[in-house]
Amino acid sequence: MLDSLPLILSFLMAGVPPTVLATVGGIALTVVLSAVAGLALVSRHRAVRAVSRVYVEFFRGTSEVVQLFWIFFVLPALVGYQIIPLGAGILVLGLNHGAYGAEIVRGAVRAVPRAQHEGAVALSLSPWDRMRRVVLPQAVVEMLPPFTNLFIQLLKSTALLSLVVVDEVVRRGQLLVPNLGVGEKLTIYLVELVIYLVLALLITAGMRLLERRAAARVGRVPATGVAT
């Protein structure tokens, strides 16, 4: 069984770049959408809140697999144009996790004590300065741990891209399974799981670094605890 391990490893590792690309691209889009939609959710304008709320509930309410298939199969039928699978994947990962991230941003902004808003009001800071200079820097500290979890969810979701034939880790595993002996299946899947575990640990480590920095900026010791 171990004879084929090098082969399995090299074959699956070739799927890591697409997986990483989808994860990084998805995270980038998630961060942007979370910030925009999250701040829109705490806007003073009702219409802005409503638009953002529709986005959030729509993407949280429909299944990610459905969203992926919809963009992959339905959209081309409607607009006559096919997005490349990896691009479609990143789009869905970002739109879906951005909706969850928006709620994180909203919750963290609202968790900043009222007294901090009032302190900023008492100094006559404008609403925009209050948000940007006082509330957001404090809210970011609260956001980072849940965002770590969200990014790991996103990493796991990249496996779904194998269903729309993106050549990532799981897809390559599926190509390998029928071509190797019966006993090799477990090895293939274990290698896959370990690849995801390592990527998840990398995300966690990177986010811990950010957490520590953000916590130091507000003069706090970072909370300890397991976040995966």
Binding site: S157, V170, Y196
Partner: peptide
């Protein structure tokens, strides 16, 4: 728990469906 929640459900489903029969 830490391992299993850091890895994709899809791969886990493959393990249970395809490897357990072995």
């Amino acid at each position: 728990v830490q391992f299993w929640r850091s890895t994709p459900l899809l791969v886990q489903a493959y393990v249970i469906y395809q490897v357990l029969p072995d």
